[in-house]
């Protein structure tokens, strides 16, 4: 396991000069993943923010092989690369170990690419799928996804005079993928680089499919000043809104337990997308959201305790 000091001495494989917004967490995430994965890695990116900001022809931020196919098929595309790798290895045409990492935002992963991801995981390709979850379709201008939090304002779940933001709780994709009984599933957040890079390393070491769902704060969509991305990421973990945990061979393990769980209201207050929830008439929404966070966190604690 490389330390931050060691990693910082490595040459960046996701180069600067890309066109991501100031404060974008997803670009930090990709840079870290590329550093950990190293040069013998092929990346596949779904259509979305990160594909757009990193590949505008004739420029590229990728100093490793990179392929973009379409929106909903990053997992299937990666599975094809892995199949050729296995085939050529079997036929003695390739000897070195090469990693395959497919990634997508929550749009390309939770929603339109869900089937493709499920298929690739079930087929047990030796690959890592990474979801940078910024909780809405940010690339097209902040539309709701099935990862968007309860009550959040997006352009298709606007905080209106009658309906106050998104009316549904997000899909628990991490658990849905864990239900595929693959060897490794994890949730991470970019403020905790040590935890995250360790998880990437683990995912690439194990044989078979791995899935990492990493929260990716988005200043534009979540409406906060760009310099606060890492703080907001930390707050997501401290409020248990976004638990940091892993499921290794079916066993849940919590990687970060706050000494004292911070109230969800702190997280809600930190972002403009929840602004409308601070009014008296929407107080019940905050309460409901807190109740859901408690329920999920307690469930996770129980699973970790029971080692299931």
């Amino acid at each position: 396991m490389a330390s931050l000091k060691q990693l910082s001495a490595e040459k960046d494989l996701f180069a600067s000069g890309h066109r991501a917004c100031a404060g974008c967490a997803a670009s930090i995430i990709l840079r870290q993943v590329a550093l950990v994965a190293g040069k013998n890695t092929v990346f596949v990116g779904a259509t979305g923010c990160m594909e757009v900001v990193s590949t505008i022809f004739p420029y590229t931020s990728w100093k490793v092989p990179f392929l973009h196919n379409a929106f909903e098929n990053s997992a299937a595309t990666g599975s094809g690369i892995e199949a050729t790798y296995r085939s050529l290895k079997k036929r003695g045409k390739i000897t070195k170990k090469i990693n395959v990492i497919s990634f997508g935002g929550d749009g390309g992963t939770y929603d339109i690419g869900f089937q493709s991801l499920s298929g690739a995981m079930e087929r047990r390709h030796d690959m890592l799928y990474l979801c940078y979850n910024n909780e809405a379709y940010m690339n097209t201008g902040i539309q709701r996804s099935s990862a968007t939090p309860f009550g959040a304002h997006t352009t298709t779940s606007p905080a209106g005079t009658v309906i106050p933001g998104k009316q549904q709780f997000p899909k628990d994709l991490t658990e849905a993928i864990a239900a595929h009984d693959i060897p490794y599933v994890a949730q991470a957040a970019p403020h905790n680089w040590a935890d995250f890079t360790k998880k990437v390393e683990k995912a690439l070491t194990i044989e078979g499919p791995a899935f990492i769902n990493i929260l990716s704060p988005c200043p534009l969509g979540w409406v906060y000043p760009p310099h606060l991305s890492i703080k907001i990421s930390k707050l997501a973990a401290e409020t248990c809104f976004w638990p940091i945990y892993e499921v290794e061979n079916g066993i849940h393990k919590i990687n970060f337990k706050p000494k004292e769980k911070k109230p969800l209201l702190e997280w809600i207050k930190s972002q403009g997308r929840f602004r409308h929830l601070l009014s008296e008439k929407n107080k019940h929404i905050v309460e409901e959201a807190q109740k859901e966070v408690n329920r999920k966190w307690d469930r996770l604690l129980k699973m970790a305790e029971a080692k299931i």
């Binding site: 392929l67 299937a76 599975s79 094809g80 199949a83 050729t84 493709s116």
Partner: peptide, 11 residues
């Protein structure tokens, strides 16, 4: 989609 990945990988 897998065919595209596989062919782009040189298969």
């Amino acid at each position: 989609s897998a065919c595209v990945g596989a062919a782009a990988a040189g298969g």
